[in-house]
Amino acid sequence: MIVERIEEYVFGGLVTALGVFTLVDATTITARGTAGTVGPRAFPYAVGALLVVTGVAAIVATAKGKLGQAAKAADAADADTGLRTDWPTVAKLVAVLVAHLALIDVVGWPVAAVVLFAGAAWTLGAVWWKALAVAVVLALVVQVVFASGLGLSLPAGVLEGVPLLDG
């Protein structure tokens, strides 16, 4: 619980920091010939102030023991709030997403999609070969639908030139 409380402080701190950044960066926005009217800086100042105030308020609320998580009991169907946070799973999913976006331009969308789907399903507990099989079918179907049906072509990458897949 103590770790989660520290996290809440950090998040509130980040909101405050973003507010400060907004206020500081807003002074660098060029505002020419807007005398007498409201220029492009006013709204950023207001938003920056809102972020600073709410960030601090969230920190104060946390200090008073009003944690954000406590109120969230019954709303996530597949999440068991009683469980400990499974950080390795979150990290793996983020890694899979990074791999996906790094691979698109290198090997094409279908292969990158297989990596994303199979990687995510396996991370979450699916049998690896089943996840892989579903991923291959799904990626190919989406690629064909985009290439032929929607007229929007996803980069085929290593599968370039293959009929149906390369739109």
């Binding site: 973003l18 505002a31 220029g39 492009p40 972020l51 709410t54 969230a58 104060v60 609320a61 406590a70």
Partner: peptide, 29 residues
């Protein structure tokens, strides 16, 4: 879970809306 957190979320959204080119003055923000 609390008004402070709701308003902070609103502030984050407003900030994301600011990113880009200002429509009235053409300035980048």
């Amino acid at each position: 879970s609390s008004p402070a957190r709701g308003l902070a979320a609103l502030g984050l959204g407003l900030f994301l809306g600011l990113v880009g080119t200002d429509t009235l003055s053409g300035q980048q923000r």
